[in-house]
Design a protein around this nucleic acid. Structure first.
Length: 334
DNA sequence: AAGCTAGTCAACCGCCACTCC
DNA sequence: CGGAGTGGCGGTTGACTAGCT
């Protein structure tokens, strides 16, 4: 059963001959495709319009790159796939000269296997539980969903904004190496953001972003809330982090997890004192029972104004994105 | 050399969303 | 409002090829 336009006419199927290609290219370059259903008739082809369209888009288009994917392209595919999932057409928009079909094939035939070989679930980019159990890294958690904890002090009160973002929304890169396989990328475990507008050092607002690796924690000290996304950022070539007119990112040596461990130790030593003096760390992880919040995130993702800059900064601070322009281009397709 | 297997990739299929009448 | 036509997309298939036995 074919498409509507195919059912009415006797159409040829299978591989295209050079003659057919020539006819199609000749017609489209002179007339444009216009209505695809009328293309085969005008071009003298015994194909359905849909087949012509596919052939043009996937093979005959003059701006196609073809050839093997570069390491950079592979990284881009993995990184965008981590966010968008199997939205091949959207992923392909980040790869000039590549088609969704090409990206999809490359993913299925190559990247997918590499991720599996690294013990990563190609769908979620999280560690596969069985792999984790057998892995020497001895991760206590297995496939913990990506979590954002925002500890915000508003006046004298702490307001907690926390969201769990199950894949495919955002996950951080795996703890040991990036799955692109071409080159290992060091992932900074902690980030500290200093807002120049905040003069009181005690008014620090914390964001922690945790992935499956408890040691790969991103601590964004006082950053914008989800409702107020960070201002557009630019890549800081000096190292991890970003510089822009309103934000200053800097990598921090001490992982948040270490800080938490210190807290635990101090709590054990001075349990009562601690409750009063230590900065409160409210945890409100959204588990699977909290579908409503998760749905909100999904809706937010599907909205045109989805906070891509937040994702941008999230990925960039993870050190996994080398080409910021392509991340900024995410703005168009959601 | 022949047969088998796995990988690659072009093309198809089926579905959905949109537009037009 | 609903159906037809169309474009677009993701999943899947199958032909082809390279490598191995």
């Amino acid at each position: 059963m074919g498409h509507h336009c195919c059912s009415k006419q006797k159409v040829k199927r299978g591989l295209w001959s050079p003659e057919e290609d020539e006819k199609l290219v000749k017609y489209i370059t002179t007339h444009g495709h216009g209505c695809w259903s009328s293309v085969p008739k005008h071009a003298g082809l015994q194909r359905c319009g849909k087949s012509c369209r596919l052939r043009w888009i996937n093979y005959l288009r003059p701006d196609l790159k073809r050839g093997t994917f570069s390491a950079q392209e592979e990284r881009t595919i993995i990184d965008v796939h981590r966010i968008l999932g199997n939205r091949w057409a959207q992923i392909a928009k980040h790869l000039p000269g590549r088609t969704d079909n090409e990206v999809k094939n490359f993913w299925n035939s190559c990247i997918k296997k590499k991720l599996i070989a690294q013990g990563l679930d190609p769908k979620t980019h999280n560690l596969i539980p069985s792999y984790t159990k057998n892995n020497a890294c001895n991760l206590a958690q297995t496939c913990t969903p990506f979590t954002i904890n925002s500890h915000m002090r508003v006046g004298e009160t702490m307001r907690n904004v926390s969201a769990q973002m199950n894949p495919p929304f955002i996950t951080l890169p795996p703890p040991l190496s990036h799955p692109s396989l071409h080159e290992p990328i060091e992932i900074p475990t902690t980030f500290q953001y200093e807002d120049p507008r905040i003069t009181d050092p005690n008014s620090t607002l914390l964001w922690s972003i945790k992935d499956q690796n408890p040691h790969a924690t991103m601590d964004l000290s006082h950053t914008s809330s989800l409702e107020n996304p960070p201002i557009s950022s630019s890549f800081n070539p000096s190292g991890f982090g970003f510089l822009d007119e309103n934000c200053l990112w800097a990598s921090c040596v001490e992982p948040l997890e270490t800080q938490k461990l210190d807290l635990v130790e101090q709590q054990q030593k001075h349990p009562q004192q601690d409750q009063q003096q230590q900065p409160k760390m409210y945890e409100m992880d959204f588990n699977e029972s909290n579908d409503e919040k998760r749905l909100d995130m999904e809706n937010a993702y599907n909205r045109p104004n989805f906070d891509l800059e937040f994702m941008d900064s999230t990925l960039m601070t993870s050190g996994i994105y080398c080409n910021i322009s392509s991340m900024e281009q995410l703005a168009w397709d959601c």
